[in-house]
Amino acid sequence: MQFSYEVNDSYAEVKSVGRLNMVAAPKLREVVAEVVAGGSSRVVVNLAETDFMDSSGLGALIGCLKAARQAGGDLRIAGVQPQVKMVLELTNMDRVLTAYPSAEAAFGDD
């Protein structure tokens, strides 16, 4: 699992590659905390290359969403793959973590 991020004018994109499980979840929290502390509170987590997420990974996304909102921004997800979509739907979290087709589309409307 690895994370990288890129900050541009209107949002920061965090790329998540690999399995977002209990091993990777704390790292995602660290990366998003760093991005938000750096002044980017509008965050897109790009999950196009994340083929697996468990409840720990989901918990980390929820924690990151709260951190972004507390800083006055928001967190959105993009590029959701079938297994991640399934976990979001079964936990009813698809209503809270809205999925966008791409990172560009996530903050494209505002």
Binding site: S55, L58, G59, I62, K66, N92
Partner: peptide, 12 residues
Amino acid sequence: DEEAESGRGLAL
């Protein structure tokens, strides 16, 4: 509830 960051494993 949806704010919780853990506790979904068994239900899942």
